[in-house]
């Protein structure tokens, strides 16, 4: 008997651009309070899926259900928007606002809190992300990792129940990738939000996620626990998961070839 409580359910989601289908009936269920990661090669529609869920793109067909209510319903959509935050691949920080002003922005514009309370909450969010000392800095003067933390501070300041992470480690080196995934795991545990992450970083995602799904050519090719993903012998999963091993084999074959003599 099914007892899991799902924060978000996606059913048969389809989305195309200029006649070319990107999502071809994607269905998945995200358990409440978990880290759910959608893996997949670049260009398979992971970000499109997340943007459909985050209401940035309108799906062509299918349903997204939040706490039993489909997001087609304007009231449910508005409720979802209030309780959800989106962390963009490029952070989407306002470069003309300081770190503190960036964090305060959603509180200023969507709540009726007073100036002092907004300042307190924003500063607290920065403090929780170890960014308090950089409150007066503009995003352009922060390192990539700090910008990521600042974006997360802005995402959690409204105390969301769901945070959507779009390729949070894109363009980062392995050390920073680890740091970002650790940050997601640490703050997800601390604030108890449901995290839906899309990425193509397999080892890091398997280490921090409660559940993973593999999106391949617009369809969900696998959904299960990280352990099941690691053990899966399904060809699509194995091909993506073992791509590093395949690279090693290819390189070994190249190196073993005799160089041509002139």
């Amino acid at each position: 008997m099914e007892t899991t409580d799902f924060a978000l359910e996606v059913e048969g989601l389809e989305k195309g651009f200029d006649g070319s289908a990107v999502l071809k009936g994607v269905s998945l269920r995200v358990p409440r309070g978990s880290i759910f990661t959608v893996l997949g090669p670049s260009g398979t529609g992971k970000s499109v899926l997340l943007k459909c869920i985050g209401n940035i793109l309108a799906p062509d067909s299918g349903r997204i259900v939040f706490e039993g209510r489909p997001l087609r319903d304007p009231a449910a959509r508005e409720d979802f928007r209030k309780r959800c935050s989106f962390l963009f691949q490029g952070n989407a920080l306002f470069d003309s606002l300081t770190a503190l002003e960036n964090v305060a922005l959603p509180l200023e514009q969507t709540t009726s809190l007073g100036k002092v309370e907004i300042f307190k909450r924003s500063l607290k969010a920065l403090q929780q992300l170890e960014m308090k000392d950089f409150a007066d800095r503009y995003p352009g003067r922060l390192s990539g990792g700090m910008q990521k933390r600042l974006a997360l501070a802005r995402a959690i300041v409204t105390q969301p129940e769901i945070v959507l992470f779009d390729e949070p480690t894109a363009g980062l080196d392995p050390l920073r990738r680890n740091a970002v995934f650790s940050m997601i795991a640490k703050y997800q545990r601390r604030f108890r939000f449901t995290a839906l992450v899309v990425t193509h970083d397999v080892p890091e995602a398997l280490a921090v996620s409660d559940r993973v799904a593999l999106l391949n050519q617009g369809r969900i090719a696998f959904e299960g626990t990280p352990a099941a993903f690691a053990a899966s012998s399904e060809s699509g999963v194995a091909l993506f998961r073992d791509s590093v091993d395949a690279l090693h084999r290819t390189l070994a074959a190249i190196r073993s070839e005799q160089p041509a003599t002139s």
Binding site: R81, Q89, Q109
Partner: peptide, 21 residues
């Protein structure tokens, strides 16, 4: 630039009316 860097999309996801802001 704000459109290109998804700042406008970020406002919408925060529930801020981007035209109003």
């Amino acid at each position: 630039i704000q459109r290109n860097t998804e700042q406008i999309a970020a406002l919408e996801t925060m529930g801020v009316n981007s035209l109003g802001y």
